[in-house]
Design a protein around this nucleic acid. Structure first.
Lengths: 245, 245
DNA sequence: CTTGCCGCTAATGTATACAAATATGTGGTA
DNA sequence: TACCACATATTTGTATACATTAGCGGCAAG
């Protein structure tokens, strides 16, 4: 039997990357904070070499930004966050259009329909805890249907920013009734998306994916307003600067 | 007076990155070739540390791929190349739609109209040497009009693969007359794009950008067929695997 | 009091030595 | 003859020492 995968995500670089990423998205540093390598390496319990690999990666992910030697935590305006979600919609729209244009057999849609079915049950029983997880699975399966690793990778790239991910604001909402409405509408989008793909309606599928992303836009707008007015806590917004503009 | 920019692209890492990138896109290695760090560092005249930084960056650019520790030169199928161009069209389409929706003043369109004018003159005088450069400038100005660094960066990402760039096949064509037709049609697209943006016709602008990318698709298809049939040389295709599929 | 230069300090950039792990080849055994 | 285990060599992962440079504060001159 083959041994387990070599250092299965368990190297200094990987550990540092995960830990550093989670600290950044949790708002551990203010935007534009310069990260010094030596103290950071100490704090993460590794040496500068794997740390720099992690920093390089996080720059590519868009969480860090070079500034004259060294890195600073990137700041995102509210408009940036909206645009990131818009871009996700565009990318997912492209993926589902391609999926529709492939004229998939009905067999290939069984797994994603199963996911949809599970979300249906979730909503019926009104236990919304697992929604985020299932929703992520749905979106993952969705862009897999495009049939090309290329587009899938790019969609995943677009989802990487914490406020841009499909399920970024799928929980911890103050306004429960508005939240339920969002879920119901979103789930209708899911049904319609798969239907459009199964019928080869590429343009409709693309438009639906974009509109689906707009639900997230509304969510983030509500969260942003709540944070400003009620000083609510939204971990997903930790990276988004508070001032308007 | 301020000193020149700190290490203005002149560090071991930068040099190695440039040199390595150019070797890869030139087809210096076959696809799936494993790059060994020590001999590669020697060959580039630097040590392993900056080399690894460059390798990491090239992985993010999509030219390299991790494989069980170490990197291999990524292989691209012909379909990958087509899809990369399609994605560029999608991204540029999003940028120009946003530009149109911003309702720009006519003043803001002066620079790009100047570029268009220069291309017009180029085509009239039938000196197509500088076309690639001007075309790149046009596309750069185009996605700048979206007014957000975010979208601009993503478009530039989509252009990074050598066969996906706007001017990838804007020269060295065998069939001169077909090439001229392509340029004329492409330039008409340019005119129409700026007109659509100036009129706030977002949907039209987006569709035009996608269709514009399809010109590149045709170009790469011709080049691919020529390579197979006439054994022509197309440096931009060095990364694209020769077998069909 | 302002401004420009100089030197210091602290940071990143680089090289290299060492550790760990994987792949390979060889020998033995069933 | 095929297959498994073990040893070895090659390669990547990590740490650290050193070089280099940018930022900064103080000092002197205008």
């Amino acid at each position: 039997m083959r041994r387990a995968q070599a250092t299965p995500g368990d190297s200094q670089t990987e550990r540092g990357l995960r830990e550093l990423r989670s600290r950044i998205v949790a708002g551990h540093w203010l935007a534009n904070t310069k990260l010094r390598e030596v103290p950071l390496a100490e704090s993460l319990g590794l040496s500068r070499t794997p740390l720099r690999a992690a920093l390089l990666q996080l720059e590519q992910e868009g969480l860090l930004q070079r500034q004259g030697g060294g890195y600073i935590v990137r700041s995102f305006s509210f408009e940036d966050a909206l645009l990131a979600i818009e871009l996700r919609g565009v990318m997912e729209g492209t993926a589902v259009r391609m999926a529709a244009e492939r004229r998939l057999g009905s067999k290939q849609l069984v797994p994603i329909q199963e996911t949809i079915h599970q979300i249906d049950e979730l909503l019926r029983d009104d236990c919304v805890d697992q929604y985020g997880e299932l929703n992520n699975r749905f979106h993952d399966q969705l862009c897999s249907l495009a049939g090309n690793t290329f587009i899938k990778q790019e969609v995943e790239r677009a989802n990487r920013l914490p406020f841009a991910a499909p399920s970024a604001f799928s929980s911890s909402e103050d306004d429960l009734s508005r939240f339920r409405t969002t879920l119901i509408v979103g789930q209708q989008h899911h049904h319609a998306l798969v239907q459009a793909i199964s019928r080869g309606e590429g343009s409709r599928a693309e438009a639906l994916a974009r509109e689906h992303a707009h639900l997230s836009k509304t969510n983030i707008e509500v969260a942003y307003r709540d944070r400003a007015e009620k000083h609510g806590e939204f971990p997903q917004l930790a990276l988004v600067s508070a001032q308007v503009g």
